[in-house]
Design a protein around this nucleic acid. Sequence first.
DNA 1: CAGAATCCTACCTGATACTG
DNA 2: CAGTATCAGGTAGGATTCTG
Lengths: 133, 133
Amino acid sequence: METRTHAAYEIKLSDRRCPSRRALDLITDRWTPLVIFLLSDGPCRYTQLKRQIGGITQKMLTQTLRKLEDEGLATRTVYPTSPPSVEYALTPLGETLREPIQQLLHWSRSYGLQMRSTREVAKSDEERRKDPE
Amino acid sequence: METRTHAAYEIKLSDRRCPSRRALDLITDRWTPLVIFLLSDGPCRYTQLKRQIGGITQKMLTQTLRKLEDEGLATRTVYPTSPPSVEYALTPLGETLREPIQQLLHWSRSYGLQMRSTREVAKSDEERRKDPE
DNA sequence: CAGAATCCTACCTGATACTG
DNA sequence: CAGTATCAGGTAGGATTCTG
């Protein structure tokens, strides 16, 4: 009993190789939630995704999409038009992430501003703690 | 209209400096969701957290906790016992993250195994795509 | 358009030593 | 106990260039 077991979920957070832990690691990085959020709105093309996610590089976008594809969360469809277009979409499994991810985005929208103001308030405390010279 | 606006949430994902976007970035990294998840179960001490989150270094744990503190999501309370103990707890603002984070953990538990099996299935596809000599 | 390839840096890890 | 400090090494990620 080295790990606290939570009423509802029995995840061994203490073990990085635990499948649940690996699943969590997969969806908690800088770009994955954003990509999934956009895809949860419907299929989307590469350049569309890139334009809508500020700051992402094509390397990271490609890498993130490949990962989602490999894990069975998204599909990649190439339309042989000219110029070619590639469309990404969530799989049924990927769709199950819609709710959790949207909750996260919902929270971000609600508390983004509150957090900023809290920081301002906390600044004086910081100054006191740091005690620069 | 360069960014898709989503029915419920108006977040400019295309702008990294958007407060909502910054809030999201804050909670989507390797360690923050895990720390918040554990704290959402009640106040917890440093060593307890460290033991329960497999693979985290003391540097990253401290860094993550400081960030949560600075953003007003968690509190740090020092009990001047001997040896001293430090307890971390969510603030009311931090508590608002309970549901979203638990949803994420819930998903991880449910689909951790499914994803593995999907990967196995997808392997043959990968082989075909890579076409190694 | 949708990437692949390359280079390069910042951050993270891991180990260890030290402190109040 | 709850950190801080340091240093070696690896890897994730950014910037740039090129391509079918």
